[in-house]
Design a protein around this nucleic acid. Structure first.
Lengths: 339, 339
DNA sequence: ATGACTTGTGCAAACGTTTGAACAAAAGGT
DNA sequence: ACCTTTTGTTCAAACGTTTGCACAAGTCAT
């Protein structure tokens, strides 16, 4: 049905090998034959069969993206879209395709990954963010399969990864609140099995310490990346006999939940409670009031991860194993204490 | 390097064909051999090479998702994530993988699609929403390649598609505002080349007409799916000598832009302007006040599209070419006129 | 003119599967 | 006991590429 190299070869009066060599710009092809073949190629509308190509070359020109479970949670956050956008854009630009997979259960997840990796379906994979002692990392290392991690691994510090300096980012966020005169600063964290949660917590604590402020355990609550957890955290904080005057939230969506709860109860931000969060997705800019947020360059993270992976699978030299994308604090109304 | 069928065959003392038949549950394999082979299969940790499989079977167990340009715009909307989530979940559930592609320019886009389709890289594709006279639809049709459209095509009504009844949805939204006592209702539309824009406009106009209200051209403005266009629309409407008292916005993000603008200027929603929008992404629920929105079942759309496509590529009988996902109006504060 | 490279092309094997055809052995019918 | 059918297995071709090797013809130095 489809046009193959053999069809082209016949019509051009050469051998299939020659056609193949023309296609790959082999140096030892005479300009005349090359021209002739190219003409037929165009005339017949030839397109290479990628499966056949992959079978012999053992590369697929495809990278895989493995979405962490549970997907629902992540998909509710624009963080996600941004990272994918970065990845897919970079991949498309270098002629790579992107394969996405996920699973509802741990078993399903591993199955899907196995299909990709052991089925030689992709040349390498991007692991979208890191849990503590992630079984997927071990899996990849065991199989010697190229991958880059978005995030960080304590267990395996020597793998390719793209990340922010989350400790420093949280430090900066907290510092900013302290600079605004706050001494009573709470923290809404993320799931403890996520590395990012620990890192941001660490930065928060360090900033307090460096300012000579004692951390208060009751002002640190654990949440997830959904707005409900922000809402819950807010209710909790506002019921305390002694309330914090400012809050660092692990994510814009969480901060948004806090903000929404406060507004509902009639509190004013930043006057009753100042707010800083992370990720700087459009939500934080669009809320009323706009929320101060650490821009972590999500698109950039995705783009860089894709770039790093593609370099790695091509065997290009890697300047560095670990890339840190710079962050910056975007100050908005939610953390500006009125004079 | 990797374990092949031949390795397994050798170790089990049978021919490769037998192993292949065990793998595909061929009826004429003796239980004894099957058991023996399966044992070796497990022992050696065999996994099929999908490229080789695809080469001979001419199917890839993969579906493609083609993202419309410009990607940046779409990725800022959770609509997108939701639809992808639906697709990827259903695909994973049926053992299919998902390949994503996009392009920055028209040429890049076509190139990427060609790679997928003509390179036989996927069994079928999902076209994520429909422009008027979309060149991709013609391309697919020309090549006889299986695809399903998320959206609708006027030019080719007989293709597989998953959609909402956007006319009815807009009708319902507008009716709701009319039922709240509004007679001066504006509309913020989307890009005119998108079918959804026309459909929702049509429903809006029809609802006005059925209620005996004359449409006012100056109360209809064109936007895109970004919040800025909502903001712009708002500024425009509020400067008019005669303002609408309610607005139908083509998308939650747009409505959010309107809301944000109004809040900034000190207007109150719904008292100064009532608001209804479409898509019901979390934004509309989380804003202050929450925005009434038509829930169009985005996840469901993605899920169904994937399901339809996979059925089609498997050659299963299609109950219907065109699936309409039901919508429902979620009434929230933004459209409830205080007594 | 000879031998030694260089250039351009073709042959054939290989990649890891699937599958129709062939065939041996077992089972069944008379 | 013989022919026919069924059952279980193997053989070999095919899918569409790439690529090492061989080789013919041309180029060049001697």
């Amino acid at each position: 049905m489809a046009i193959t190299i053999v069809d082209v070869a016949k019509k051009a009066g050469v051998s299939p090998s020659t056609v193949s060599r023309v296609l790959s710009n082999h140096p030892r092809i005479s300009p005349a034959t090359a021209a002739k073949v190219r003409e037929v190629l165009k005339e017949l509308g030839y397109h290479p069969n990628i499966m056949a190509k992959s079978l012999v070359s053992k590369t697929t020109n495809t990278i895989g993206l493995i979405l962490p479970r549970p997907a629902e949670e992540l998909f509710q956050n624009l963080f996600f879209s941004e990272v994918i956008r970065g990845i897919v854009t970079q991949a498309a630009r270098t002629g790579y395709d992107l394969m996405m997979t996920t699973g509802t259960t741990e078993r399903e997840e591993l199955e899907a990954v196995t299909r990709l990796v052991k089925g030689r379906r992709v040349d390498g994979v991007i692991l979208l963010y890191s849990r503590q002692s992630d079984p997927l990392i071990s899996f990849m290392l065991e199989h010697g399969f190229p991958f880059v991690l978005i995030g960080r691994s304590d267990e395996f510090p020597d793998i390719l990864s793209v990340d922010n300096d989350n400790v420093q980012a949280a430090y900066d966020a907290t510092r900013h609140l302290i600079a605004q005169g706050h001494k009573r600063i709470g923290f809404v964290s993320g799931p403890p099995n996520l590395i990012v949660s620990g890192d941001r917590m660490k930065g928060y604590l360090q900033a307090l310490k460096d300012a000579g402020i004692d951390a208060r355990p009751e002002w640190i609550v654990e949440g997830d990346f959904l707005q409900e957890s922000g809402y819950r955290a807010m209710s909790f904080f506002m019921c305390l006999p002694e309330r914090p005057t400012a809050l660092v939230a692990i994510d814009d969506v969480v901060a948004f939940g806090v903000l929404r709860g406060l507004t509902e109860l009639g509190y004013k931000v930043p006057n009753d409670l100042s707010l800083v969060s992370f990720n700087n997705i459009s939500l934080s800019e669009l809320s009323t009031p706009p929320i101060s947020s650490i821009d972590i360059g999500i698109y950039q993270i995705g783009y860089t991860a894709s770039q790093t992976l593609i370099r790695a699978v091509k065997g290009e030299a890697m300047p560095q194993k670990r890339v840190i994308i710079p962050h910056r604090l975007i100050v908005r109304e939610s953390s500006l204490t009125q004079a």
